[in-house]
Computed example of a mutant assay.
Amino acid sequence: MKKLVTLITFCLMYLFSFAQGNVEVKGKVTDENGQAIAKAEVVINNTTHTLTTNEKGEFSINLPEGKYVIKVSKLAYGTKRVVLEVVSDTQVDVSLEKIKRSKTSRA
């Protein structure tokens, strides 16, 4: 009986500590025309989390409450950094601008 009570207590403590403070952060990455950018890289600075957006430009992650810097980038587009205070479920949308190529003449 004592082992069962210990096991139940441990399980409840584990579940409580895992759930406490974790919130869902969802986002969408688009271009300057509002079109979704698939396979954009989303890096949560000072963590080990790196995500890739899906074909709709969306990403989702659960993070502990706190302040984060999110870096979003995609080849042929600029890079943006967003400072985010996570205290409840959060939506963060980022618009990237396409890098314009300059034409140069060769002599």
Rank of each mutant, 00 (worst) to 15 (best):
F16Q: 01
F16Y: 10
F16C: 08
F18M: 04
F18K: 11
Q20S: 15
Q20H: 12
G21C: 10
G21F: 09
G21M: 09
N22P: 00
N22V: 10
N22R: 13
V23M: 10
V23Y: 15
E24P: 00
E24L: 15
E24G: 02
V25S: 03
V25W: 05
V25K: 09
V25G: 05
K26A: 08
K26P: 01
K26W: 05
K26Q: 12
G27Q: 08
G27Y: 02
V29K: 03
D31W: 09
D31V: 04
D31G: 10
D31N: 15
E32M: 09
N33T: 08
N33I: 01
G34N: 04
G34S: 13
G34E: 03
G34F: 07
Q35F: 14
A36D: 07
I37M: 13
I37T: 06
A38N: 11
K39S: 14
K39W: 00
A40Y: 02
A40H: 02
A40V: 03
E41Q: 14
E41V: 14
E41K: 14
V42L: 10
V42R: 03
V42K: 08
V42P: 04
I44L: 14
I44K: 11
I44T: 11
N45V: 00
N46T: 09
N46S: 12
T47M: 06
T48P: 00
H49K: 14
L51G: 03
T52I: 10
T52W: 09
T53D: 04
T53G: 02
T53R: 01
N54D: 15
N54Q: 05
N54G: 08
N54I: 04
N54K: 05
N54A: 11
